[in-house]
């Protein structure tokens, strides 16, 4: 499973091999699957290590693999402006406790994207300064991007708030 074609992954395997589940570089996208407890440490390393310098967290999202365990998968896309290279980091989270460390301390861009994932998938981010719904109304029940949330679900219109 371990593909060392990418020097980035080689470097990551050498230093944090024990924190990784697997790596691959399919379709040219270097990917590393990280054990959730080590996420913050690996990400910090990726940001600060000379030669890697991933200074931008471009994208952060989750995937729901309903029926598999662990069910949720966090997906991070990193980009290095200085080195012009990309890396994808993934971490699997169990259905019973979908909690992962927040990356807001490392990259400010994580703030809204983590709120979005919390909103749509119900994954909680430990250490997030302001974890509340962002796209949906506060009174919305459920997390619509979960695969078990029916697409045809309807809810009554939101009542105007009383002053």
């Amino acid at each position: 499973m371990d593909d060392c074609a990418s020097p980035l992954l080689r470097r990551l395997l050498d230093t944090h091999g024990s924190a990784l589940h697997a790596t691959h570089a399919r379709l040219g996208d270097a990917t590393a699957i990280v054990k959730p407890p080590a996420l913050l440490e690996v990400m910090g390393f990726l940001r600060d290590e000379p030669g890697l310098e991933f200074d931008m967290l471009l994208d952060l999202t989750a995937v729901d693999h309903l029926g598999e365990e662990p069910r949720f998968e966090m997906v991070y896309h990193l980009y290095s402006l200085a080195r012009n290279h990309r890396l994808r980091i993934k971490a699997r989270l169990p259905e019973s406790e979908p909690v992962v460390a927040s990356l807001t301390g490392l990259w400010a861009s994580a703030d809204w994207m983590e709120r979005e994932v919390f909103d749509l998938y119900g994954i909680r981010f430990e250490g997030h300064p302001d974890l509340r719904r962002i796209l949906l109304d506060e009174s919305f029940e459920g997390h619509p991007l979960r695969k078990d949330h029916p697409k045809a679900a309807r809810r009554p219109p939101v009542e105007p708030r009383q002053a």
């Binding site: 994208d59 999202t61 995937v63 896309h77 809204w112």
Partner: peptide, 27 residues
């Protein structure tokens, strides 16, 4: 950016659009 996940079927498992407006608005 588009991050797509497929399970080999005719329907996507995940279509994530990385929206530039969303991230540009944040700061």
């Amino acid at each position: 950016g588009f991050y797509l996940v497929s399970d080999g079927s005719q329907r996507p498992v995940k279509v994530r659009c990385r929206p530039p407006s969303f991230l540009n608005l944040q700061p």
